[in-house]
């Protein structure tokens, strides 16, 4: 353990092993660059509506998107998130975000070549709400995520909320995707 002399040079962000459990969902933490590079498309869009379907026994909620901008790839006109009600069957998956009709988001999307389903990259990590400010600018934000987050080596890492000026985010995404190395 840490000696009292040594302690101050060690920070609690050191990787943690051994004794943690997952949340309802288990996530790998992705940086903005990783989000951008792993996404097959990135759009700014407003949620126009939603409906559900059952795919391989899983209920998915399809959120249809009214695309305002496409930052990467071919714009997908809907994103699917697991969970929802279809007929008399209702599925709940804690940790899965719910989108609000009429709200504006930046969505980092990933289409599975195996299933054809368009997902959010990293669940809530790939979803930023866009809020217009009084000065006409816009902020893209996501809240701190309470789910279990691991780094690429499987060690637990902390999350924190993300807030970016929308134009800065767009620039960041363009830089990241112009030099993208897909994970």
């Amino acid at each position: 353990m840490l000696s009292r002399v040594q302690f101050c040079v060690r920070a609690a962000f050191l990787a943690v092993v051994g004794t943690f459990v997952a949340q309802a969902a288990t996530l790998e933490k992705l940086s903005m660059d990783q989000l951008s590079q792993n996404a097959t498309s990135i759009v700014r869009a407003t949620v126009a509506g939603s409906y559900t379907s059952v795919i391989n026994s899983t209920v998915y909620t399809h959120y249809t998107l009214r695309i305002a901008e496409t930052w990467k790839g071919v714009a997908a006109n809907e994103v699917l998130v697991p969970g929802g009600t279809s007929g008399d069957l209702r599925q709940v998956f804690p940790g899965v975000p719910q989108l609000a009709a009429g709200s504006e988001y930046v969505l980092f999307l990933w289409k599975s070549s195996a299933t054809g389903i368009t997902h959010l990259v990293g669940l809530s990590q790939g979803l930023f709400q866009v809020d217009r400010q009084q000065d006409g600018s816009a902020l893209a934000t996501r809240a701190k995520i309470g789910e279990m987050m691991l780094d690429a080596s499987g060690k637990k890492v902390a999350d924190s909320a993300v807030t970016m000026v929308l134009t800065d985010m767009r620039s960041r995404v363009r830089i990241a995707t112009s030099t993208a190395v897909t994970k």
């Binding site: 997952a22 309802a24 969902a25 288990t26 996530l27 790998e28 933490k29 992705l30 990783q34 989000l35 792993n38 209920v59 697991p82 969970g83 009600t85 007929g87 008399d88 069957l89 209702r90 599925q91 709940v92 998956f93 804690p94 940790g95 899965v96 990933w110 599975s112 997902h119 959010l120 990259v121 990293g122 669940l123 990590q125 790939g126 691991l150 994970k183």
Partner: peptide, 15 residues
Amino acid sequence: LPPGLLGYGGPSSLA
């Protein structure tokens, strides 16, 4: 699963 999502779970219930 998409990048950044490692697993999830939950119940399916009758409405």
